[in-house]
Simulated scan of single mutants.
Amino acid sequence: MVNTDFWRNKNVFVTGHTGFKGSWLCLWLHSLGANITGYSLKPPTTPSLFELCQLEQHIPTHYADIRDQDTLQKALLAAKPEIVIHMAAQPLVRASYLNPVETYETNVMGTVHLLEAVRMAVKKGITIKAVVNVTTDKCYSNKEWPWGYRETDVLGGYDPYSNSKACSELVTDAYRNSFFQNGVGLASARAGNVIGGGDWAPDRLLPDCFRTLSSGGKVKIRNPHAIRPWQHVLDPLSGYLILAENLYAHGTRFAEGWNFGPDDGDGKTVDWIVKQICSKWGNNASYEMDSGQHPHEAHYLRLDCSKAKSLLGWFPKWNVEQAINKSVEWTKEYLAQGDVKTICLQQIEEYSKS
């Protein structure tokens, strides 16, 4: 469970804070009383959760590229963070096929630039106790096994996105071994397919479904039998926060890679997920197969989260049906022109008390 008292007045530097997960994280941290500084490109979609919740009014923000080392280092030095959470990334598999160079530059060299900025800040006397690099479950060399991948399994990645995140893991390990053996707790966090309200990214299942359903269309699905570890966005975010708390308190003891995925029963097929969405949406919502040509995507992927459960005391709270319910509830409130920030905070409070 997240220690709500811990975060009050903590100085936290968050990269990628204008994205879907970053916005939820900042809403949560702000509600806990943390002092957040954000570093990111402008929100990647229109609309965006960041803008709808007016987060710029509450979070000092540097709009800049993670590949701009000088600007990044100046921003981090000015923020004087105690905790750094690195989420800035090119996060889409299909986009990585179209722009592989940009994907590697952002996901690999972006990590190098962030960790180098931390190293320079520490040399200048800033006490940074915890750094969490958020990667992905797709960083593993996927053998399509029926069992979950553990943190000790081989890294890899078929496509440029997945592979770049494996590279980011290796960069993290090298900096941890070379520069952060004393004082700075540096860890990586690997989560599954995250869903929730406020995601408008292209080529993601739920946003694609909601865009189509809200316009009265029929959902098209690419890989109906693909199985993914679906989870509500608050589940992995709680893991990142609990991990940061432990890094802060215990330093290098928790400076490793960590899986934050759903329970095994929540590994569902795309077909199952879309059926649930259509059922909960109502209005005779339906779907059909997309018979077009599509680039390779993994068929089966599962995480073994025994380590986080045993050593961090972290557990997923909302199962996949609850995650879908919360996502549909949020989206319908948005379409009805409701106060989405209030809905977010209500869901965060409900999650925290569950």
Rank of each mutant, 00 (worst) to 15 (best):
P44D: 10
S168L: 03
P202H: 07
D339T: 12
L155F: 12
T45S: 11
M109F: 15
C344S: 10
D264H: 12
T172V: 10
T342F: 09
S31K: 09
C344H: 01
K275W: 07
T172P: 06
Y39F: 15
L241M: 11
L76A: 03
R302D: 02
H296Y: 15
Q347N: 10
T269C: 03
W230K: 04
S327G: 05
I85C: 00
A130V: 06
K220E: 11
P100V: 08
M1I: 05
C26R: 08
V184F: 03
D70I: 13
K165E: 00
C209M: 05
L55V: 08
L213R: 05
H113M: 07
T18P: 06
V171E: 08
A189N: 01
S310F: 10
A79V: 04
W258M: 03
Y104E: 10
G338P: 09
D159G: 06
E116T: 13
C305H: 10
F260K: 06
N163T: 07
L243N: 00
Y161S: 04
E144Q: 12
G198Y: 01
R253E: 15
E51M: 12
P81R: 04
A78Y: 12
K80G: 00
S327I: 01
I343K: 11
S279G: 05
I324R: 02
L155K: 11
